[in-house]
Amino acid sequence: MNSTKMTWQGAAQIVDIKKAIFWGPWYVAEQRLRNMSKWLVSLISFGLGNPILFLFAIGLGVGSLVDANAGGKAIDGVGYLAFLAPALLAGAAIQAAMDETSFPTLQGFLWEKNFFAMNATHLTPNSIVIGVLIASLIRAALTTLLYEIVLILFSAITWASVLPLFVSAMLAAGAFGAAMLATASKVVDDDGFFAIVGRFVIAPMMLFSGTYFPIASLPIYLQPIGWISPVWHATNLGRVLSYGLPIEPWLFAIHIGYLLSMFVGGSLIAGRIFAKRLDS
């Protein structure tokens, strides 16, 4: 039999409560990152594989067709790949944020109930929400950086646009991640909810947000789909920041304001729903 006498100083001695509360969200993020680390090879493979496939098929395939027919600088005065890159980055960052705020939220509330384990400690519902969002942004950052490496290799973006595009993609990830976290935290029974979100929210959002063509090309009655989509706001912002798409200052402010509002609003709503479910 092993010695089972434990050293025991007591929580009052070993837990620094102020530090534990202050860093609480980061400790939650650590848990999520450790979970993610189990899938690191897959994450990197998808992170590199997706953009390579997209750039070959859409960027080079469709792009060469567009450039051949409309000229090398037909859209916004740049080549099709440069036009497409901000949208692809925003889309990839959103997808990564969604991956980390959708099913892990069901995991936390329904499948493994580890949000309840966290809440049994000093961690509050708000700490958990912020921690999950931090982890989702780290995952989105990894995905975005991998995507940017591939875009650089394909000469789709310049080195100068790496940082601005990273910022716009992260704004998109934060906005969508927070909204998805608030939505997912309402789910009490996993009955294919995310399949519906994928088909009826994500797909239209990608198709009608000026991803593959300027939003102005759409009939006016379809353009509002883009206006409410974080993909369009982030994509347009990325186009401004990367190749200097000329837009009105108020529209620039709206892009940033919309994405930040979605992030803050989604986080606050998620915090309220988490509190309701965890502190009954």
Binding site: A20, Y27, N35, L123
Partner: peptide
């Protein structure tokens, strides 16, 4: 409500990290 993705020792480690 253990973390199923994590190993046994990691469950203890991560929970300890929650307390800083």
């Amino acid at each position: 409500n253990l973390d199923r993705e994590l190993k046994v020792w990691e469950n203890l480690f991560i929970y300890g990290r929650y307390f800083g």
